[in-house]
Amino acid sequence: MAEFSTTHRENGEVNIIELNGYLDAHTAQHLEIAISDLIVKNKYKVVVNFERLKYISSAGLGVFMAFIETMRSNSGDIKLAAMQPSVYNIFDLLGFPLLYEIFPTETEAVNKFNQ
């Protein structure tokens, strides 16, 4: 089975989730748990760092959709950063750039929150 893991860091008010490996139907649950954990703790400003994510499927994308409204209605957001081109292609293909802010680097995404 493909490996997937997440790590969580904080940068001021912003929570950074780093994704690692393959995010697909099988592993989507891990991400779901990681984001639910933040919501339980009332943390709504999230930057997802995709630097080490090798693959994403639509089920993985669905997880971001499932939580975006909760974040935004609590004056937070999920901002996406540092995607590899193959991963970005999937986001682009399914029309995500219209609804999500996607940044080349994690720093830029964090800065956007701090503006």
């Binding site: 639509s58 089920a59 399914l94």
Partner: peptide
């Protein structure tokens, strides 16, 4: 649901 969310926003 995740799959449909991902595909169709």
């Amino acid at each position: 649901v995740y799959s449909l969310l991902g595909h169709f926003l």
